[in-house]
Design a binder for these strands. Structure first.
Lengths: 162, 162
DNA sequence: CCCATATGGTCTCATATTGCAACCAAATAG
DNA sequence: CTATTTGGTTGCAATATGAGACCATATGGG
């Protein structure tokens, strides 16, 4: 039973993970960002089982993170394309990538480096910043409860929080 | 078989997901960032099965994203705490949260708002920026292959790319 | 100090998900 | 026009999850 759905949760993180939280989803999106379009591209790049790939792609299409479009080259096969919704997951992908570069890098270094296309330089770390653009310390980041959401009481013994 | 390990992949995203890619991991980390410390906190907040929570917490501890420490209040029970490694996942969490706020928000709004502790204001979107702090367009973000990694050839029919 | 309850697990079972391999129809290549 | 590729689907075995029973230790109230 992998299935305990997050979709009824009010938390945006849980709701997002409902869309991209399965094992392969974010890697599929990563490949799409790197130019993969066809079923075979994802399959070969990931080494994922075909039926699983079918499921994940269908989920992403249902979640409007990707769309099936007629092939650009006139082929009768369809292609998978990121929507704007999907492309806006870039900060998540970049953050995951940069965390991995720093903390769990492969001995040969990362396979892919995220860059500023203009300069070709490695991108600075995606990080919380103020409006001014100034980087914040993590200790400066807070989390406030929405007034419409039940308050958190870690000590209590009452109902579930979510 | 949920298990096809990503750990041998060279890609940093895959390597990161190996640590935090399971269904509950990122929600556990979110709760820890919001002050959860004890087993019961996570259990009540998430409504996760106890055996699954045990597994996830053990994985996080093994991955040195959390540590078990003696309780701060003198209790004989231990507490779970984020390491620096774990705290540095904040950009990922924030990015997920903000994406959810924008694209799949709950009708009552998000349960939690990520803020600048100083001002109390909602944090600007975590987003790729140049060294200067200037926000980039997503189209300006590139991905370059490491020279040590095999090149990508989406059209080819050769071995797996990873 | 004693007893009731809370806490933090572990174990078993039913079910859901994944991976693998076989198979297939339509598309494409030569 | 035939062989191969593509994009699936289906069935089966292995594995992970959720639910609940169960248990030892810790804590709280009197």
């Amino acid at each position: 039973m992998k299935t305990k759905s997050f979709s009824n949760m009010q938390c945006s993180i849980a709701r997002t993970l409902e869309h991209v939280g399965s094992w392969w989803s974010l890697l599929i999106i990563r490949d799409a960002m790197m130019g993969a379009r066809r079923f075979k591209h994802f399959q070969k790049s990931l080494g994922i089982a075909k039926n699983t790939l079918t499921s994940r792609l269908n989920e992403l299409v249902e979640g409007r993170i990707m769309v099936r479009v007629p092939a650009a080259d006139g082929s009768k096969y369809e292609e998978y394309q990121l929507t704007e919704r999907g492309r806006e997951l870039a900060p998540v992908i970049i953050a995951l990538s940069q965390w991995g570069d720093k903390w769990v890098a492969h001995e040969d270094g990362p396979s892919t480096i995220i860059t500023d296309k203009d300069s070709g330089e490695r991108l600075p770390r995606v990080w919380p910043r103020r409006e001014s653009g100034e980087r914040m310390a993590l200790s400066e980041v807070g989390m406030r409860r929405n007034t419409k959401a039940p308050p958190i009481d870690w000590t209590g013994k009452e109902e579930k929080i979510k």
